[in-house]
């Protein structure tokens, strides 16, 4: 099925004196996961509000499920949309179950599904406690359960993993993959980048209300032409001795190679019998993000590190994980 769920055509938004969104084009297919990245104030939330039909685009067109999200026809479509706002704090004095029951009624979803959803997000134990006793992560999970109500066909999640512990984050991404498998389109809005790569099909990088880059990670990587990091072990003096390889050396046993030369260099390295280990690290999302922001700002930030030290925290992707982010 390749139907277009969300279609933005040259969409822009202007509040009284400030333009917060410029000429955004976006086609989101059924079953596609889009990562929307940008700093605070980049226009992510505004873009989401336009798609949700909460605010009207000042120029251009927005269509969700084929209709204008603010029109009367879009009304029934809203039942198929799940939204997790950023920083939402639910009715504190209500229990988790009461909160979710309220939202289920408003969405005309069977109240019986509330228990299931609470199970799914791991709040079954806490469902009869008032929300005010919940931790940040539990509130976030309640918000997710709310967004998952009624098997949505379109999900917009604003900073979904904020406050979640690693296990809950893992479970959250599993739910995302599962919903995607069921044909739901998902827009993941984030500035926390590590870990999200394997779960998105395409990425859009927003800054100052403009779309700086848009495409699959492989496309973005190709366009950015960022070097691949190769770390070797056991080759102490040999790399410096090789005239070819020593040019690429940035640190002891650490090479930076362009995408085209990658295979040739790896082959060359494998010829050394003393090579004990080899780690190949393609430019990750954090570096891509910095690269595009840097290009936009007019300075090529090629050597910029990952956002929030993103690519340093255990993100030593090996050859295997690179294969997972092929274009669709």
């Amino acid at each position: 099925m390749s139907s277009v769920i969300v279609s933005l055509n040259n969409t822009g938004k202007q509040y009284q004196h400030t333009r917060v969104l410029h000429n955004i084009d976006l086609q989101l297919q059924a079953g596609e996961v889009l990562g929307l990245f940008g700093h605070n104030g980049a226009g992510k939330t505004t873009l989401m509000k336009i798609i949700l039909g909460v605010i009207k685009a000042s120029e251009g067109q927005a269509k969700v499920f084929g209709v204008d999200p603010l029109s009367k026809q879009a009304w029934q479509g809203r039942r198929q949309i799940g939204y997790l706002p950023e920083n939402v704090s639910f009715y504190d004095q209500l229990t988790g179950k009461q909160v979710l029951t309220y939202f289920a009624r408003l969405k005309a979803v069977e109240v019986a599904s509330v228990g299931e959803l609470l199970d799914k997000v791991g709040l079954r134990q806490a469902m009869d406690r008032p929300v005010k006793t919940y931790s940040k992560g539990m509130r976030q999970r309640l918000g997710l359960a709310q967004a998952f109500l009624g098997d949505p066909k379109l999900l917009l999640l604003d900073e979904p993993t904020v406050g979640l512990d690693p296990t809950a984050t893992q479970e959250f991404y599993q739910s995302v993959d599962q919903l995607k498998g069921d044909g739901a389109s998902i827009i993941l809005c984030s500035h926390v980048l590590p870990g999200v790569e394997q779960h998105i099909d395409r990425a859009m990088i927003l800054s100052g209300g403009r779309s700086l880059a848009m495409g699959t990670l492989a496309q973005l990587r190709r366009d950015a032409n960022l070097p691949v990091s190769i770390r070797t072990q056991g080759l102490n003096g040999a790399l410096q001795a090789n005239a070819n390889l020593s040019q690429l050396l940035v640190a002891q046993g650490h090479l930076q190679v362009s995408e085209q030369d990658k295979l040739a260099v790896v082959k060359q390295l494998l010829d050394y019998p003393e090579l004990r280990d080899l780690q190949l690290e393609p430019a990750d999302l954090g570096r891509l993000y910095q690269h595009y922001l840097g290009t936009a700002a007019g300075n090529t930030a090629k050597s910029a590190g990952g956002l929030n030290g993103g690519h340093n925290d255990g993100q030593s992707a090996n050859i295997q994980s690179q294969a997972e982010v092929k274009p669709q």
Partner: peptide, 13 residues
């Protein structure tokens, strides 16, 4: 202030 108003407005309401 708590953000639920925005959320409610995305519902079929």
């Amino acid at each position: 202030e708590s953000g639920t108003l925005l959320l409610l407005l995305t519902y079929p309401l």
